[in-house]
Computed example of a mutant assay.
Amino acid sequence: MRTQKGFTLTELLMVVAIIGILATIGVPSFRSLILENRLTSTANNLLGVMQMARSEAAKLHSTITVCAASPDQSTCVNDANWSAGILITQGDDILRVVPLRSAGVTITSTRPRIDYRGDGKTTAASFTLNDSRGDDFERVIQVNAIGQACSGVSCS
């Protein structure tokens, strides 16, 4: 009597079919998870930039400007599209360059720049972050008149 080693062709085809079914179910969920993480990460970076700029304005008792960056990130642009990155400036001096290039995420604002005064106050603005999934998955960040930036349920 011989003992059989290995798999039969039928067993191998069944395993390949099961792997194919699991991949069909799992891959779209994984793609959605990646897109969600990109959008959340970009929103958190933008919130951090606003909070840092407000803090610097209060610390230095000076006006700190947060603006949309040019594609080479060397100057501010007068544009509502902030997807190329952000500059934090004090007068003509660039304090920080924040590249926000996250694949497929677009950032639009109601204002091309935000000026935080020495007391931390500013003019209200909002940012909308979108990706390829459309408006159902957008994130909105609001900056109120006293300079606080918030997103989602924390804005209530």
Rank of each mutant, 00 (worst) to 15 (best):
V140E: 15
G147Q: 15
G152Y: 11
T123V: 01
A53C: 06
L46V: 00
N44F: 10
G147N: 04
A124Y: 02
K5A: 11
M14N: 03
D93S: 15
R111E: 12
T24R: 11
Q73Y: 02
A57I: 11
R31I: 03
R54N: 04
S62M: 07
V105E: 15
E138R: 10
F137Y: 08
P99N: 06
V49E: 06
L129V: 10
N37Y: 06
L47Y: 14
F7H: 05
T75Q: 06
G6R: 03
S109L: 04
T65E: 05
I19T: 11
D72G: 06
D115G: 11
D72F: 05
R96Y: 01
L87H: 00
N37C: 08
E56Q: 08
T89M: 01
F7K: 14
N81M: 11
L87D: 01
I94C: 01
T108A: 03
E11C: 12
V16D: 02
A68T: 08
R139I: 05
A145D: 09
V153K: 08
A58M: 06
L100M: 06
V153R: 12
S151V: 14
S41I: 02
T75I: 12
R2T: 04
V98N: 00
S102V: 13
K59W: 06
A68K: 07
P71H: 07
M1E: 13
D93R: 14
F7A: 15
Q73D: 04
M14W: 00
Q142W: 11
V105W: 10
D79M: 10
L47R: 07
T40L: 12
S156N: 02
V66D: 00
T40S: 13
R133Q: 05
G26N: 15
P112Q: 14
R54D: 02
I94T: 01
N144G: 10
Q73W: 02
C67F: 00
P99G: 09
N44K: 12
L100V: 03
S109C: 07
G120D: 04
R31T: 05
V77P: 06
I86H: 02
C76T: 07
V49R: 01
T65C: 07
T40M: 00
G134A: 12
N130G: 07
A58S: 07
I64D: 01
I21L: 03
T75V: 15
R96A: 01
